[in-house]
């Protein structure tokens, strides 16, 4: 469209965009059973626009049409709408708190189950695996790494990243209190960094949708960082309820550094453990309305 030409239609382009987004969401729901209606609209619109651009659909309506008629596009669409990639040991002080404060408590359990919800390309799964390995806990731990996108899970399972990340990730590793060499955990070929497959030995990758799927494990730690920021308040509450129901009493929840649970009705089911790092524990005492 010519950027200089003002819009002459009666409702305005922005209102039209709202309608297009609504119809896309409806199409995903009715055609494929994926409900994005409770996602925070501004980011959703941005991602849908990007998908429409990268698939050369012209408009969001064009993307909706292809979503309806070309089911083979679904994995690509879900990938575009799910959690973005992260870094290994992103926000090192959080991983330092996990290493120094959380793992020593988890060490008292004979078996440690961890659910990472929204694992994207798996950077934080392997970060956790390294912490467990170095704490001598990995043999009795299991990480369930889930994501909405099967393409993201595929990527996570491969554990292959651009080698240029190694320097930053190594700095992050050291900042978490790591005393070995980060390079012990990967090999480099050409310009790709491949994570040692031994770190994957106790990881299960599985598709899971926080909107519609149920609790599937009893976890001692749930890691879900920078996922809830993409959810509206009711969906955020819903996801927190899932984490609560998955966690053992006293189990840990780790959220993203700028994620606020203030607007979630289920926030009362968690007690702060390390508030600045957004680490919480499932309350020992059942809160009103929560599962016994």
């Amino acid at each position: 469209m010519d950027p200089e030409s003002p819009s002459h239609d009666d409702i305005g382009e922005a209102a039209l965009t709202d309608i297009e987004l609504e119809l896309f969401v409806r199409a995903m729901q009715r055609r494929h059973g994926y409900d994005f209606s409770q996602y925070a609209p501004a980011s959703l619109l941005r991602r849908v626009r990007q998908l429409a651009n990268s698939l050369e659909c012209g408009t969001i309506s064009g993307l909706t049409s292809r979503t309806l008629h070309q089911p083979e596009l679904l994995p690509r669409v879900l990938e575009g709408l799910s959690v973005p990639v992260s870094d290994m040991f992103r926000d090192p002080r959080v991983f330092r708190a996990l290493r120094e404060q959380v793992l020593p408590i988890l060490a008292s359990y004979p078996r440690i189950d961890i659910w990472q919800a929204g694992c994207a390309h798996g950077e934080e799964v392997y970060s956790l695996a390294i912490l467990l390995e170095e704490a001598g806990l990995y043999e009795r731990s299991h990480i369930f790494a889930t994501d909405l996108s099967t393409r993201a899970l595929q990527h996570a399972q491969e554990g292959i990243y651009p080698a240029r990340e190694a320097q930053q990730w190594s700095r992050n590793y050291i900042a978490t209190g790591g005393t070995r060499s980060f390079a012990d955990y990967y090999s480099v070929r050409y310009n790709l960094l491949k994570i040692d497959k031994r770190l994957r030995r106790n990881v299960t990758f599985a598709q899971h949708n926080l909107v519609s799927d149920k609790v599937f494990c009893e976890a001692h730690l749930v890691l879900c960082r920078n996922v809830l920021i993409y959810f509206s308040n009711p969906l955020q509450s819903h996801a927190l309820a899932l984490f609560r129901d998955s966690l053992v009493r006293g189990g840990f929840l780790c959220l993203g550094l700028r994620e606020s649970t203030d607007f979630a009705t289920t926030a009362a089911d968690f007690d702060p453990f390390d508030e600045p790092q957004r680490i919480y524990r499932r309350s020992i005492h059942p809160a009103a309305g929560s599962k016994a």
Partner: peptide, 21 residues
């Protein structure tokens, strides 16, 4: 806008953050 995050406006006049690329 805080460092390290995209800042977005929602239509209900509230802020939203994102860690999109």
């Amino acid at each position: 806008a805080p460092p390290g995050y995209h800042l977005l406006m929602e239509s209900d006049n509230r802020f939203a953050l994102s860690v999109d690329p």
